[in-house]
Simulated assay, not measured.
Amino acid sequence: MSGQPRIAMSEKMTRPVVRYRDGEWVRRNDEIATEYALTIYVNDNELATIVCTPSYMEDLVYGFLASEGIIQSVDQVESLQLSRFLGTARVRTKSAITFNQAFYNKRYIASCCGKGRQSFYFQNDAVTAKRVDDAVTLSPDEVFAVIDELDGAATLFQETGGVHMAALCTPEKLLLARTDIGRHNALDKIYGYCLQNGISLRGTAIAFSGRISSEVLLKVSKIGVGIVIARSAPTALAIDMADELGITAIGFVRGRAFNVYSHPWRIVGALQADTEVK
């Protein structure tokens, strides 16, 4: 990857398009999300190449290393050198880090969620996934407020339509939000920021712009958050994992409705639901 030319470091770029609307053709400039390849080295060993949005990349590196079990805390890192021109992040740890070089070396992490990424996660989830026992609760109105906060911070999505977004919230407010072309990257950026700044994750929820895949659910468990809320659907495997890992998964938040798929005790009133007979 180091031999490839690098592009501008903006989150978005302008490209000409030909647009068709209501029977008319118009030439215009459009905002396009930037796709950027970042290669991570740990103690001079090539670990992975992540295709990402070039923002908050230090947070991304710390979050990725922690979620994959390479480090357990930021104190293990002696230095992190980012070269935006070369597209590299070189991490030096205070002591030797042992990882399966044959598996990790030259692993390419795509911005989409294809076979390579899923295999990468399932190889490590037994070690890095953890059960979440946080007793945080939300009312239905707070669920809607969390999604409203997510939408309010979605500037890059509104401009390009080409990124995912994740936000860390309490029942009272949005703490931080991150965007990326890779949904897992947006979560890693949140995790990395929290690790570096000593932010407690108890009493928080994660709001997410896309569907809740097994990959997203595993990432939430690694971060240690008990509630994940999304506008779209979860997968069946994600629900199974949420049941096992103690995470409340909420999907299809639209209008004044949503579905709770696992651990409904965290949502006020959910355990009083009547059985619908059709």
Score class of each variant (00 low, 15 high):
189 K>N: 00
189 K>A: 03
192 G>C: 06
193 Y>W: 12
193 Y>L: 00
194 C>M: 05
195 L>G: 03
196 Q>I: 00
197 N>E: 15
197 N>M: 12
198 G>K: 04
198 G>E: 11
198 G>Q: 12
199 I>T: 09
200 S>E: 09
200 S>K: 12
200 S>F: 01
201 L>V: 13
203 G>V: 12
203 G>H: 08
203 G>F: 07
203 G>Q: 10
204 T>L: 01
204 T>A: 10
205 A>Y: 07
205 A>I: 06
206 I>Y: 06
207 A>C: 13
208 F>R: 02
209 S>F: 02
209 S>R: 12
210 G>D: 08
210 G>I: 01
211 R>F: 08
211 R>A: 07
212 I>R: 05
213 S>P: 10
214 S>P: 02
215 E>S: 15
216 V>A: 13
217 L>S: 05
217 L>E: 01
218 L>K: 12
218 L>H: 14
219 K>D: 07
221 S>G: 09
224 G>R: 04
224 G>F: 07
224 G>S: 08
224 G>Q: 06
225 V>K: 11
226 G>D: 03
227 I>T: 09
228 V>S: 05
229 I>W: 00
230 A>E: 00
230 A>D: 05
230 A>Y: 03
231 R>K: 15
232 S>L: 14
232 S>Q: 15
234 P>Q: 10
235 T>I: 10
235 T>K: 09
236 A>P: 02
236 A>Y: 10
237 L>I: 09
238 A>H: 07
239 I>Y: 03
240 D>N: 05
240 D>R: 01
240 D>S: 12
240 D>Q: 10
241 M>Y: 11
241 M>S: 05
241 M>E: 07
242 A>C: 02
243 D>W: 04
243 D>Q: 07
244 E>A: 14
246 G>H: 06
247 I>F: 04
248 T>M: 12
248 T>I: 11
249 A>I: 06
249 A>R: 01
250 I>W: 01
250 I>M: 09
250 I>D: 05
251 G>W: 01
252 F>R: 15
252 F>G: 09
253 V>S: 09
253 V>T: 11
254 R>P: 00
254 R>G: 13
254 R>E: 15
256 R>A: 08
256 R>E: 13
258 F>C: 11
258 F>V: 09
259 N>W: 04
259 N>T: 14
259 N>Q: 12
261 Y>T: 00
261 Y>V: 02
262 S>R: 00
262 S>E: 03
262 S>Y: 03
263 H>F: 04
263 H>I: 05
264 P>M: 08
264 P>H: 10
265 W>K: 13
